[in-house]
């Protein structure tokens, strides 16, 4: 998994560069980063809210 992380990071950076060059536009950075920021956001939401919503038992309503 550790190796895969760096490969993915490399692919992503190349993709961002390609998007910038091929579309001949200034990279819309916030949008380009949305995948990464969004993932952090979902994990943060889980840490902040999801864990508080965990029921005490595995099958709470049973």
């Amino acid at each position: 998994m550790k190796g895969l992380r760096w490969i993915l990071l490399g692919v992503w950076l190349v993709g961002l560069l390609a998007e910038s060059l091929l579309t001949k536009q200034k990279l819309p950075l916030p949008y380009a980063l949305l995948g990464l920021i969004g993932t952090f956001g979902f994990v943060l939401a889980y840490e902040l809210f999801g864990k508080r919503l965990l029921a005490r038992k595995e099958d709470y309503y049973a």
Binding site: L4, R5, L8, G15, L34, G35, L36, T39, V43, L54
Partner: peptide
Amino acid sequence: NLFVGTSVGFAWLVARLQPKPKEIL
């Protein structure tokens, strides 16, 4: 790029998304 960026985030944060055997209210 959106999805590869998401994959990058997942690869780094996978331990945080480890499923918990509990119900979410």
